[in-house]
Nucleic acid binder design. Structure first.
Lengths: 252, 252
DNA sequence: TTTGACCTTGACGCTGCGTCAACTTCTAGC
DNA sequence: GCTAGAAGTTGACGCAGCGTCAAGGTCAAA
């Protein structure tokens, strides 16, 4: 089975100009070129084009796509990678559907949509954000750490986290100052809690970056509504942030 | 909750430049602009941005997106449309996953992948193709016609179609000529069968376009592997095409 | 043999941003 | 209150990825 440039373009939903562009660019050569110069596309070209179009829709540039395709020695691996990328994309879209549904339902109920859920719509970047802040290795390590725990251990860690949150909420409600002894004791507990996660600067003993991280974590409570929600309201989140900032300044 | 331009950009996975571009373009204005000229984005802006980014990924241009958003009077309808678009997108991706899986399995089994399944990967354009060939109205009418039938009627029509296909296959196997009486009788039956679908030129009595359509349908049996597969092999599809072409030339 | 549809190779143009540059404004720590 | 550095602003220029002619060759059907 073989197609002319127009036939393939029509089925792929692009123009023949695009196919010529890819040819010129060295990204997708026709399977066969007639003596008259006509381009004919066969099986391999169709599969390759599908992969190219997927990556283009993910926002990749042509040079990046060429690189990916060039690195693939095995055709099977390439197709498997393609499937994996598609599945990831599908999951992302389903996440977005849930996100928009929530926004719609909140709107109909007359309440404000929760920002954390709304933001989940495009949070494929959250991971990137974490990585750029604390490094790729930190992300990998702490990820492995979490998945390396038993279910029982995971539950225990979650429980400890929730206890900490509850303590923060109680302190915030008590109306004490973020620099008070009680708040600072909680901050110390918070830092110890953080240091249990390997791969983070606190666990590694890097003082400079530890301070930056503790402050950064504090900021997250205010900036990132997913955390703000945990602490009941904005005031609580601000309290946690201030306490952590004070702790980082005075005791680290 | 309110974000600065960078905060929103980071979470959306774009740059602040893009947000400024959208503002300048009149596509997404900040919820509030400080006395200092700073842009601040709130709830509405976030939801709108999500919609914009979705449409961008679907390949729409900024003017087209602006038009869509401008037409939406009701915010609820907009969100519902967004969900519908996302679901369609998800279905398309799942279709593609099946398509690529098939290609991979065929490759592993050492057989040729079926082109119809491969092409299903990007066949959101098939509908467009049909429309551009026979017109929007024709598509609408025949679509309504099909969905207006009872389940029993649909089964009956499908049965008639399969009988026709079986007759074609038998004729092709018999090794007769496409211009023979038997083949031409079948062609006539095929045309009658086509004319049952309202909205097509044959049903409307438009002779010129009827001939074009019958020929076009004939070509589809060879060009479009989904039909070729129905007729068992390429030779069968060629037989059907030649018979239909001959019929259109001599008897219409 | 002609007609019309489809192919080819340039070449120029547009859209959607990326990327300085030059300047102002805000925030944190002394 | 002052200063450094991060983040904000408005131009302006540049580039990638095609769209869109223009000026021809090729092919299939009548």
């Amino acid at each position: 089975m073989e197609w002319t440039i127009q036939e393939l373009a029509a089925r792929a939903g692009i123009t023949s100009r695009t196919l010529r562009h890819y040819d010129r660019f060295g990204l997708l050569a026709p399977s066969r070129v007639g003596a008259n110069g006509y381009r004919y596309y066969g099986l391999g070209a169709v599969a390759r084009l599908q992969r190219i179009l997927l990556m283009r829709r993910l926002g990749m540039g042509l040079p990046a796509i060429a690189e990916v395709l060039a690195e693939e020695v095995d055709e099977h691996d390439g197709l498997r990678a393609h499937i994996a990328a598609l599945e990831e994309e599908r999951d992302r879209i389903e996440q977005q559907i849930r996100s928009v549904r929530h926004t719609l339902e909140a709107l109909q109920a007359g309440v404000e949509p929760r920002m954390d859920v709304m933001l989940a719509g495009f949070n494929d970047r959250y991971k990137d954000e974490v990585i750029s802040r604390w490094g790729e290795r930190a992300f990998q390590v702490s990820n492995d750490w979490w998945h390396g725990k038993t279910l029982e251990q995971q539950r225990a860690w979650k429980q400890a986290s929730e206890d900490l949150v509850a303590a923060w909420v109680a302190a915030a409600r008590a109306g004490i100052s973020p620099t008070s002894a009680r708040a600072q004791t909680l901050a110390a507990r918070h830092v110890r809690w953080l240091s249990e996660i390997p791969g983070t600067p606190t666990a590694d003993g890097d003082r400079e970056r530890s301070i930056a991280m503790v402050k950064g974590v504090g900021d997250m409570f205010v900036d990132d509504p997913r955390f703000a929600a945990m602490y009941e309201d904005a005031a609580g989140a601000v309290f946690v942030r201030d306490a952590l900032h004070a702790y980082a300044r005075t005791r680290m």
